[in-house]
Simulated scan of single mutants.
Amino acid sequence: MIGVSGSGKTTWVNSHKQYIACSTDSVIEQLAELMGISYTEAFDYIQKKKKFDYITTKFFEKIHDCILNDKDFVIDRTHLKRHIRISLINELRSFAKEHGKNLELVGVSFELPKSTIFERLKKREKHSGKSIPKQVIQEQIDSFDIPTLDEGFDVIERIN
C-alpha cells in the first residue's frame, strides 16, 4: 500500500480479506486494546517509551511468516518515499530468495485529492477518535513520491 494517511489504504485492505494484513498500526491497536486505552494514547505511550523497535519487529515477523508459509499478504503503511519503498522491496526479495521463495510485488498507490483525504480523516476522527494533525498530513502530501515500476514492483495499481 502506498499513500497518505486517510487515503483509503486500510479500507482497501479490509475489503480484500484474501490477504493477511501486516501493519504497525494493528500492533499499536492491539496494545491499546490490551491496555484499555485509545489508539492515540497507545501511540503516545510508544513514543514516550521508545518502543518503535518492538512494533517494527512484530511487523516484520508477520511479513516473514507470510513469505515462509506462501501466504498472500498486504503491507498497510504509507510508504511515501521512493527510497523507503526500494529498501523494503529489496529486503523482502532478499529474504524470500534466501528461503527459496518467489514474490510477486504489487504496489497499490492511493493518489487522491487533498480535499478527499482531509474529509476522510475528519470522518475517521469522529468515528474512531483516531486523529492526525493537519500539519502532519500536509507534510505527508508534500513528501509523497509517486511510485514507479523501477523501484522493484511487478505491477502498480493506481487509485485516484
Rank of each mutant, 00 (worst) to 15 (best):
I2L: 07
I2W: 09
G3S: 14
S5H: 03
S7W: 11
S7N: 02
G8F: 00
K9S: 07
W12Y: 03
W12L: 01
S15N: 10
Q18P: 03
Y19H: 07
A21W: 10
A21R: 15
C22V: 11
S23G: 15
S23K: 11
D25C: 13
D25Y: 05
S26G: 04
S26Y: 11
I28V: 13
L31M: 10
A32Q: 01
A32F: 06
E33C: 05
M35W: 10
G36W: 00
G36Y: 00
I37Q: 03
S38N: 14
Y39M: 12
T40H: 12
E41L: 07
E41S: 13
A42H: 02
A42F: 12
Y45D: 02
Q47T: 07
Q47D: 12
K48F: 15
K48M: 14
K49M: 14
F52A: 13
Y54S: 10
Y54I: 08
I55C: 02
T56P: 02
K58I: 01
F59T: 00
F59I: 00
F59A: 09
F60N: 03
E61W: 00
K62D: 15
K62G: 05
H64K: 06
D65Q: 15
L68V: 02
D70E: 04
D72Y: 13
F73P: 11
I75A: 03
T78W: 00
H79M: 15
I84S: 09
I84F: 12
I84T: 01
R85F: 12
S87E: 13
L88W: 00
I89T: 14
I89F: 08
N90Y: 14
N90L: 13
N90S: 09
N90R: 13
L92Y: 13
L92D: 04
F95T: 01
A96D: 05
A96Y: 09
K97N: 01
K97F: 09
E98C: 04
G100E: 08
K101T: 08
E104A: 05
L105A: 04
V106I: 14
V108M: 03
V108T: 04
V108C: 06
S109Y: 11
F110G: 08
E111R: 09
E111Q: 08
K114P: 11
K114Q: 09
K114G: 05
S115A: 14
T116Y: 12
T116M: 05
I117P: 14
E119T: 14
R120T: 01
K122S: 02
K123G: 00
K126Y: 03
K126C: 14
H127F: 08
H127A: 12
H127P: 07
G129H: 08
S131R: 08
I132V: 14
I132L: 06
V136C: 07
I137N: 05
Q138S: 00
E139F: 09
E139Q: 15
D142N: 12
S143T: 11
S143E: 15
F144I: 11
F144C: 09
I146F: 07
I146H: 02
P147C: 01
T148I: 12
T148G: 07
L149C: 04
G152R: 06
F153K: 02
D154G: 03
D154N: 12
I156E: 10
I156N: 10
E157F: 11
